Simulated assay, not measured.
Amino acid sequence: MPTGKVKWFDSEKGFGFLATDDGQEVFLHSSALPQGVTTVKPGTRMDFGIAAGRRGAQALSATIISKPPSVARNTRKPAEEMAVLTEDLIRLLDDMSTGLRKGRYPDRAHGHKIASILRTVADELDV
Rank of each mutant, 00 (worst) to 15 (best):
P34T: 03
S70C: 01
D47N: 08
G49Q: 11
M82N: 10
R104C: 06
E81D: 11
R73L: 12
K41S: 14
K41G: 08
K102N: 08
V121F: 14
A122E: 14
D123F: 13
L100K: 08
Q58W: 03
D123C: 12
L60D: 08
R101H: 02
S30A: 06
E80T: 14
S30K: 05
G56Q: 05
R119W: 01
G23P: 05
T63I: 03
L93C: 09
A72E: 07
H29Y: 09
M82H: 10
E87W: 02
G53W: 06
G16R: 11
R119N: 02
L118I: 07
E87A: 14
F48C: 00
I65K: 04
A62Q: 00
G36H: 00
K102S: 09
A32I: 05
L100D: 03
H29A: 08
V84K: 09
L93H: 04
M96A: 15
E80R: 15
S97W: 09
L60I: 09
I90M: 09
G16V: 13
S116K: 14
I90K: 12
P69V: 00
K102M: 06
L93I: 07
S97M: 09
R101I: 02
G16F: 11
E80A: 15
P69G: 00
E81F: 05
V121Q: 12
M96W: 04
G103T: 12
A122T: 14
E25A: 07
K41F: 07
P69A: 01
Q24H: 07
L100T: 06
A72W: 06
H29D: 13
G99I: 07
V71T: 10
I90N: 12
S97Q: 14
T63A: 05
K67Q: 09
R104L: 10
A83F: 06
K67G: 03
E81S: 11
P34M: 03
P68L: 01
R104G: 07
R73A: 11
A52Q: 15
P68Q: 01
G49N: 13
A59P: 01
I65G: 04
H112P: 13
L100P: 02
D94K: 10
M82F: 09
D95L: 15
R119F: 00
V121I: 11
R101M: 02
E80L: 11
A122Q: 15
T20G: 05
